[in-house]
């Protein structure tokens, strides 16, 4: 795995940065996001795909692309998590300083976002 990560570090960094950006945005983004049911379906599908990758049933190049996709996805998720966490802290600090009003949680559809 180390060799794999070393070889693809550029693309993985890209995915991580993409995740950071998406995570940064997601904290203050309007809307509900995915519904709980969709999220569950997505999680199930993801589990199946991970299972397929781990059991190495897909041979040759498609197997490699699957691994690559999953690792990039993992990097993206880590990026998202870090991005969101950072943005959350940043927002909390600004709210504490009183520069933006405290909004109700969850935010209403018409409530203005801090980034808007």
């Amino acid at each position: 795995m180390t060799a794999f990560l070393t070889f693809h570090w550029g693309w993985l960094t890209g995915a991580l940065l993409l995740g950071l950006a998406m995570g940064w945005i997601a904290v203050v983004q309007h809307g509900e996001g995915l519904s709980k049911k969709t999220a569950q379906i997505v999680a199930l599908l993801l589990a199946i795909v991970v299972g397929v990758a781990v059991t190495r049933v897909v041979p040759g190049r498609p197997g490699y692309w699957l691994d690559l996709g999953l690792v990039m996805f993992a990097a993206y998720l880590i990026g998202c998590a870090i991005g969101s966490a950072l943005r959350d802290r940043f927002v909390a600090r600004q709210m504490a300083a009183g520069r933006i009003p405290v909004r109700s949680d969850p935010p209403g559809p018409a409530a203005p976002g801090p980034a808007a």
Binding site: G33, L34, A39, V42, G69
Partner: peptide
């Protein structure tokens, strides 16, 4: 984190391109 993660999906489109 769970709440935010439900909004992470739009990034999957550029991620797919990157992939």
């Amino acid at each position: 984190l769970f709440r935010w993660s439900r909004k992470w999906w739009p990034g999957l489109i550029p991620l797919a391109v990157l992939w």
